[in-house]
């Protein structure tokens, strides 16, 4: 096939791992549309049944603050842009 391979855009994936918790960023997947993105997120990031709810959003649609504005924007609380997940609950990892 000679035509240019159309690239499925990336979507960021957020998973609520348990009731009572926030959705947390876990990574990204590629998909042609939001519906497919949701299915791919389910298959890839919750295949051990870790989630109760999933959000997907096209990576290009995320507005993020820039680290340069850090002082004004985040004064005491540290940066929390979307690429800085707090999902990885270290206590969950065996032997850590």
């Amino acid at each position: 096939m000679s035509e240019v391979d159309p690239v499925w855009p990336p979507y960021e994936v957020f998973v609520r791992s348990k009731r009572g918790l926030n959705h947390v960023h876990v990574g990204s997947i590629h998909a042609a549309d939001p519906d497919m993105a949701l299915r791919h997120a389910r298959d890839v990031y919750t295949r051990r049944n870790e989630g109760v709810s999933i959000w997907v959003v096209r990576s290009a649609d995320i507005t993020a603050s820039s680290p340069d504005e850090k002082d004004a924007f985040f004064a005491p609380s540290g940066d929390k842009i979307y690429r800085h997940p707090t999902f990885y609950d270290v206590e969950d990892v065996p032997h850590m």
Binding site: M1, D5, V7, W8, A32, D33
Partner: peptide
């Protein structure tokens, strides 16, 4: 990767039409 090209193209085209 090459043989999957038509599938990826189809999904992209379909998504474009739906949008």
């Amino acid at each position: 990767h090459r043989e999957g090209g038509w599938v990826r193209a189809a999904a992209a085209a379909y998504a474009g039409k739906q949008a």
